[in-house]
Design a protein around this nucleic acid. Structure first.
Lengths: 339, 339
DNA sequence: TTGAAAGCGCTACCAT
DNA sequence: ATGGTAGCGCTTTCAA
């Protein structure tokens, strides 16, 4: 007897009324007689009816689903973002479909196709590191699918972007080190052309300049951020004739790496070298010494991004794209506290 | 002119052929003339046609989507699991729809309804802490929707479960402490009725027994695992007339918490009290001293769970439910190394 | 207050 | 090799 899921037709048959009436009753329209409504509701309950969202979607041309593409959903930053998105979406009766690009441009393109084919009502994306060509995103935009970038954004598309104020964060982190008495502050940066690297580097440089400290080329290191490369960069820094008294790292993993290397060398933190990271990973509060860092409002970031996507879905005409810049917060811990 | 997405009908109209032919051509059926096929393909490309998975799903009664329910997708354990699932699903041309129960029974029920309504082809779930009633899951099972439990499973439903060998892990962790010379080993456990608590407690007790160490009721603490409760339990343990020389904690966060408390008290780790955790969180390798723990194959766990769900979807008749028990691996670090 | 029927985009069956 | 058509489950006119 099991022929798959129960449909409104099954209910109609049982009650010997029309499909239309069942449909109306189920959605509580008040043009249907109360007792009919009651009978339908009870029968639906009894038969374990579950509405078929697929059919509804086909009809309404809306899936109530947000597509999300991230490079990798494991890192805390992305996990928290997605969590915020899912949470808010659920509140508004939306689902989320999630893809990982694995930092691959090709995969990211595939993901876009998948989500477009799934007819998601909106798309939230944080770009892969490889992505240099934006045709697949232009195509989303051209289709009129609400599109929101978060964290790793594409400047050349006029749509809502939610980002962290990297410049401001780097500025605050660097200035904090200066206030602690550091004067030779190194910057362990990431790949040179990455937006994030550029912005944090600028914040670092501006903080130095505003405090009348001359920047030293030797103290600025662009790293691939692999384990080996960090080892090499830190060693090279400490072997300078005039080594740094502080390191401002582009992110917490790099900062933690650096700390481990320094500790192995017997260098006192923060006494000899103070450290500041960026992103506030869960581990950072727990290591020894605890790491001073800039916390990003990750969960909130996801919520805001999702809210904007939904906003845009709702008012596709009147909606105006915005760039939302979230401030980071300096969390002072022991790796930098000298005073 | 923009009337939403392009359909096969649009292509058929342009080419002045029938819808059926377009459909066939698009799917590369060889009963269609090569030149027609080529024309269709080119036109589809040119018009930026994207197949409508919703329509396909309605027709085929398959969505190519797996539903996933976790208590919270932020913790590394769940994030890695989901990542494994998504990865494998993508490989087999499946999508994932993800819900968070927030450890709430009510929300979990809502999630189940959502995913059933979305007609996911299979469901992967790790139960909320609150869930004691399993009717919503029985209903899934009764509907014939492939169901796989991972980590937090429901024993009373005969379906595939992927779990970690908690007993074995706890046994290995405890035995390791014994080998390090500890004799009064406390166990910081979780809520008493939780399966995970029970299994790890049994492993702990069995290790003691096999090594002829008498278990001491005072050293076994069931905690709610909130910050305050852990503080209280650890303090209480250390205030015993005969305090423990080791703590085996139910998970890494609890172990790390305990370590912080002990360090504040000036108690040497591992000298006075050795510590072993469970789960191998990323933070655990980085704290001081680094935490000995049992690593779980999280990513692999997700892959296996997804593989079984897909297997079951494919061969719904011949498939036999299994319980897959994954072994943990003891990772010895400094928090327990006494010899 | 209810019913009949069209149609969302697609596939598959039956013709030709 | 191609076209016509029914139907997946639902909503929404239009009629009654």
């Amino acid at each position: 007897m099991k022929k798959g899921q129960v449909t409104i037709r099954d209910i109609a048959l049982k009650l010997d009324i029309s499909i239309s009436t069942v449909s109306r009753a189920l959605r509580g329209m008040d043009e249907v007689k109360p007792e009919t409504k009651k009978a339908v509701m009870e029968m639906a309950q009894k038969m374990n009816y579950e509405p078929n969202l697929i059919a509804q979607s086909l009809r309404s041309n809306r899936t109530n689903t947000l597509g999300i593409i991230v490079p990798d959903l494991v890192p805390h930053f992305f996990a928290a973002n997605i969590s915020g998105m899912q949470e808010l979406a659920a509140k508004r009766n939306y689902n989320v479909m999630i893809c990982q690009s694995n930092e691959s441009y090709e995969t990211e393109i595939k993901n876009v196709h998948t989500l477009v084919s799934s007819r998601v009502d909106g798309l939230l994306i944080s770009l892969s590191r490889e992505t240099k060509n934006y045709d697949h995103l232009h195509s989303i935009y051209a289709r009129g699918i609400p599109l929101v970038f978060f964290d790793r954004v594409c400047e050349e598309i006029d749509t809502t972007k939610v980002i962290v104020d990297d410049h401001d964060g780097a500025f605050k982190g660097t200035e904090h080190l200066i206030q602690q008495g550091c004067r030779r502050i190194a910057h362990l940066s990431g790949p040179e052309k990455l937006a994030i690297s550029k912005n944090r580097l600028r914040g670092y440089l501006d903080a130095l300049r505003e405090n009348n400290i001359e920047a030293d080329e030797n103290l600025i290191r662009h790293s691939t951020l692999t384990e080996e490369d960090i080892v090499q960069q830190v060693n090279s820094l400490m072997n300078l004739p005039n080594p740094p008294d502080a390191i401002f790292a582009i992110n917490d993993p790099a900062a933690i790496q650096a700390m481990l290397i320094l500790k192995e060398k017997g260098i006192k933190i923060p006494g000899q070298v103070a450290i500041v990271g960026f992103t506030n990973e869960p581990a950072s509060a727990l290591i020894e010494p605890s790491l001073t860092t800039l916390s990003q409002p990750t969960y909130q970031m996801g919520q805001i991004a999702a809210r904007h996507a939904l906003e845009q879905i709702k008012n596709s005409d009147s909606y105006t794209p915005q760039t939302i810049i979230l401030k980071t917060q300096l969390i002072v811990r022991n790796s930098s506290r000298r005073i």
